Simulated assay, not measured.
Amino acid sequence: MSDLDNEELIKIRRDLHQIPELALHEVQTHDYLLSLMKLWSTDWLEIKSVPSVPTAILVRLQGTDPHKTIGYRTDIDALPVTEQTGLAFSSTIPGQMHACGHDIHMTVALGILQHFAEHQPKDNLIFFFQPAEEAEYGGYRVYEAGAFTGKWRPDEFFAIHDNPSLPAGQIATRLGTLFAGTTEIHLTFTGESGHAAYPQRAKDALVAAAAFVMQVQTIVSRNVDPIRGGVVTIGSFHAGQVMNVIAGEAKLEGTIRAFLQSDILMMQQRVREIADGVAQTYGVKADLNLIQGGYMPVENAIEQTTDLIEFMTADPTIDFAESEPAMTGEDFGFLTQKFPGTMVWLGVNDPEHSLHSDHLNPEERAIKPGVEAWIKFLEHRMQ
């Protein structure tokens, strides 16, 4: 058995692209991945399931002369997006699409895994096929389930995320924080509805919610160091049903994003304070739920990231570039809080479409260079 060639990798990617599944429901994806892994079974390959997160798969390859255990993570879930690419291998599941490129991520991981199933590594390797990255923080769930203990505990972790604005096959990363941490905002203001002609007899939840939206815009501008930056966005606002009835309820949803966990915690507190203050001012009740889950900042570790940058920069066959940080959220950030490691961008050259676009169409010629670069680097880490 030789390494997967370009055509084989593309077939795998297209198979996966047709069966996108949402967080914690990746049943077909799980079964497809497992079927390939069983084809590549060797004496040094072991597969582990996680009963509390049944779509998760861990694969361990025993090293020939292990001094450490290296982890590699890929996410496997999709988004609730109706695909509009028109591709012959478009999603077969209505309203669901690999609009963030996790089909690319999985294919790269499988290419690396198949190589080390054929060529036994020197150090131990653990591949983590993680459900629920887009929602429900699957990395946190699997960690809390105790999956990374004993011989399954990696000493370091690596991962990729595709980037449509970079050339196909280019790898890019940076020292320090690569992606922001995020927190979901779920807020309901409850007042008393009433006739528009008699506002004194009602408690207007819509006006309170509008005041909240305006006030949270000062959190970043007046509380976060401008050199670091942050974001508070309210993306959903629903209140009222009839033009002449004062709304008794208003529901808002949004997100907090920052590069430092300390800033995220401060911003969470300011959101709480503003919600409480608005509720008191307008005589309504505020029911606020802030959810961070596993979406911590992705903090690239100094030792692993320096080594990766130096190695890939020195290899003329690898297209490498240093990148700027992004406000993108990624629950690999939780794992970087528990294990030193690095996440990198993999360019897929679709600059007209952003991640999560219903027209996202990554260039498949990015897959093979991604696989080859990672095989080289992981073998380098084992020296």
Rank of each mutant, 00 (worst) to 15 (best):
E249C: 12
T190H: 12
T218Y: 04
T218R: 01
R201N: 15
P226H: 06
E253Q: 15
A258I: 06
G230S: 11
I219Y: 03
T177Q: 13
G240V: 09
S262Q: 13
V231P: 00
R222Q: 10
G240P: 11
T183C: 13
A209P: 11
Q200H: 15
D225L: 00
G248D: 09
T188R: 12
L178K: 01
Q217T: 05
N244A: 08
L175G: 07
V224D: 05
I234R: 04
F237W: 12
T182E: 13
V242M: 14
T188P: 07
V245F: 02
T190V: 12
K251L: 15
F259V: 01
Q215L: 14
G248F: 03
S236I: 14
V207N: 04
A211E: 10
H186P: 08
T188Q: 15
L187R: 11
A208S: 11
G181N: 01
A210S: 15
E192N: 11
N223Y: 09
E249M: 13
E249F: 03
V224R: 00
G229T: 05
R257W: 00
R257M: 00
I219T: 04
A205D: 04
P199Y: 09
I219Q: 06
E249S: 10
G176E: 04
A196R: 12
F212G: 09
V245K: 14
N223F: 09
F179L: 10
T182M: 12
G230W: 07
K203S: 10
V224L: 01
F259R: 04
T183Y: 04
A197N: 06
L206K: 14
V231R: 08
A239G: 07
P199Q: 03
L252P: 07
L206W: 03
F189S: 03
P199A: 02
L187Q: 10
V207A: 06
I246G: 00
Q261F: 07
V231T: 10
S221F: 03
S221K: 06
G254I: 10
D225Y: 00
A205Q: 09
D225N: 12
P199E: 11
A239F: 05
N223Q: 12
F189A: 02
V213H: 13
A210P: 07
K203T: 02
P226N: 10
I246F: 00
T182L: 05
F179K: 09
Y198N: 15
F179V: 01
V213T: 14
V216C: 08
L187G: 08
M214G: 13
H195W: 11
T177Y: 01
A211S: 13
L178S: 07
T190K: 14
F189Y: 14
A202Y: 10
E192P: 09
G240D: 08
I246P: 02
V232Y: 08
F259E: 10
A247D: 03
A239L: 06
M214R: 08
H238Y: 13
G229A: 03
M214Q: 15
L260A: 14
M243I: 13
E249A: 14
D204E: 02
L175C: 13
R257E: 01
Q241A: 14
T183R: 03
R257Q: 00
H195D: 08
A211N: 13
G235Y: 02
K203V: 02
G176Q: 10
